[in-house]
């Protein structure tokens, strides 16, 4: 029983992390058709900003690093949009995807050159790693926080998307950007908002990723975002609800494979997870929430 609860919490916290990242990808994609492969770099930039602050400002408490980490991620998202993605906004989806790849390479190499290839320790509040005992079950604070923060973030996002003009505009833009502009809503603002939200969600995920690893390295953003991509495709690329469901589904699948696979082939976990996703996509190519019969949509 304890084991099951423990693993379920694991699935929930990993799934939450994927959901935050997948949602960021999906928001940007639904608004402007861009597959942002540089999304992982928001995490990396967040990590190194916290590292730099830790080294140069030497704060007494690690709590102070957290908002700065999130802010760095948002800033990075907005700057990327302005400098790299705006010039190619109307280009085919493939162009955007490859530009994002280029950006990702540049950012990684920046940290390799300026800092180092090796990872650098980044402190997070000790509170994160404390254990809470409920009945007979020990839970790490971090896991609870991850679930709770993901939940709150999703709620805030829902309110934003339902009850603010910019939120409505973002939802509307996913099907018809031009008509949104005919409402007098500035295209740049909608795109900027999408990137800022995407950066904010990545920043939240970054805090948890860093708390778990305790360090930043130039390639840290890649693996989680790769999973987030798979989660987004699983949910139906561009569907916001799909991204969340896909994220949690992937988290659950990972934990299940972790538990079920015998020791000798545990190293293949990711391969099994991806094969599982591939199998699902054969049955349902448009993903869980995607629209069917859209062959060719948003295609370069």
């Amino acid at each position: 029983m304890e084991y099951v609860v423990q693993q379920a919490l694991n699935a929930l916290s990993i799934g939450g992390e994927y959901a935050l990242l997948a949602l960021g990808l999906a928001i940007v994609f639904s608004v402007m058709g861009l597959v942002n492969f540089a999304h992982g770099e928001f995490i990396t930039i967040s990590g190194y900003t916290m590292y730099a602050l830790f080294i140069f400002a030497a704060p007494t408490s690690a709590w102070g690093l957290l908002p700065i980490g999130i802010l760095a991620s948002i800033t990075a998202a907005v700057v990327f949009e302005r400098l790299a993605f705006r010039p190619i906004r109307n280009a085919p989806a493939t162009t955007g995807l490859l530009t994002a790849f280029g950006l990702s390479i540049i950012v990684k190499n920046f940290f390799v050159t300026v800092v180092a290839t090796r990872s650098k320790a980044v402190p997070t509040p000790e509170f994160f790693t404390e254990m809470i005992t409920i009945g007979t079950i020990n839970i790490q604070v971090l896991q609870i926080l991850e679930g709770a923060v993901t939940g709150v973030a999703l709620m805030l996002l829902l309110i934003l998307l339902r009850h603010t003009n910019i939120g409505l505009a973002m939802r509307a833009a996913s099907t018809d950007f031009n008509t949104v502009r005919l409402m007098g809503i500035r295209a740049n603002q909608v795109v900027l908002a999408a990137f800022a939200i995407s950066g904010f969600l990545a920043g939240l995920a970054a805090i948890f990723i860093i708390a778990r690893r305790g360090a930043a390295d130039p390639f840290m953003g890649f693996a989680p975002v790769l999973k987030a991509f798979v989660a987004a495709v699983l949910g139906g690329f561009g569907s916001l609800a799909g991204a969340v469901v896909g994220g949690f589904a992937l988290g659950i699948a990972e934990v299940v494979f972790q538990v079920v696979l015998p020791e000798s082939i545990a190293g293949y976990r990711d391969a099994f997870v991806f094969l599982f996703v591939g199998g699902l996509l054969i049955l349902r190519p448009q993903g869980i929430f995607g629209q069917s019969a859209q062959f060719g949509d948003k295609e370069g």
Partner: peptide, 9 residues
């Protein structure tokens, strides 16, 4: 079976 971006991923 996939098209566009999903195929890429």
């Amino acid at each position: 079976r996939q098209s566009g971006i999903a195929a890429t991923i």
